[in-house]
């Protein structure tokens, strides 16, 4: 279960495996929470809406069509539940202008918002990293030490010729970039620009 793809965890959780569920929570809860925060929910509201997102996942586990795309599903569901939250608050307090103003996700030209956006990016990166094959994770861990491990050491640790390290590094980075979590962020940013 240490490896990558969430499909096995989703299948096991749908079948009643509590440990698999807890493993999904461990890996993805920070991303759901960071997305709610990026929608400018305060700490208490972000906690409530996060919990609702996980409820939606429990309800939909058996029919989740693409378990591999789970991070994207979670982020989209979080955005949907945040929108619902704002609409219900607007109805309860129609005169509360802030509830209208707050309806847009954070904007990165504002310094406070920039922190929320960075937190979400970091959460998405950690998810994308966790989903990588073990070989890529080991390689990145070696490259991220300070100072970075020498190619000869990496070559020994990964049983890989020195000449293969560069191409493997770029394949692994490409995989990271194509992860569902980061692709969902990129798609969202595209919407933001068009808005």
């Amino acid at each position: 279960m240490a490896d990558g793809d969430p499909t096995a965890l989703v299948t096991a959780a749908a079948g009643g495996d509590t440990q698999a569920w807890n493993a999904l929570v461990e890996r993805y809860a920070p991303l759901v929470h960071a997305t709610c925060r990026r929608w400018r929910l305060d700490a208490a509201d972000a906690a409530d809406v996060s919990q609702t997102v996980w409820l939606r996942l429990v309800e939909n586990l058996p029919k989740l069509r693409e378990p591999k795309a789970l991070p994207g599903w979670l982020m989209t569901t979080a955005a949907h539940e945040c929108t619902r939250f704002y609409r219900s608050r607007q109805r309860e307090r129609p005169d509360d202008l802030t509830s209208l103003l707050d309806r847009t996700p954070a904007d990165d030209t504002d310094p406070v918002d920039a922190g929320l956006i960075r937190d979400e990016l970091h959460a998405a990166m950690r998810v994308a990293f966790a989903e990588l094959p073990e070989r890529c994770r080991t390689l990145f861990s070696l490259l991220m030490t300070d100072p970075p491990a020498a190619y000869t050491e990496i070559s020994t640790r990964l049983a890989m010729p020195c000449g293969a390290i560069g191409p493997t590094r770029s394949r692994c980075l490409d995989r990271l970039r194509r992860s569902a979590a980061l692709q969902t962020l990129i798609a969202d940013a595209g919407h933001a620009v068009r808005r």
Binding site: P30, V58, L176
Partner: peptide
């Protein structure tokens, strides 16, 4: 990309423990 990844993995996760607990707990609603 490698630089952002490094920052992400070296930044402490700000998620409150209660948020994870609440997410674990909803499994009983299955």
């Amino acid at each position: 990309l490698l630089q952002v990844l490094t920052q992400a993995l070296h930044t402490p996760d700000p998620t409150p423990a209660s948020v994870r607990e609440a997410a674990r707990a909803v499994y009983t609603w299955r």
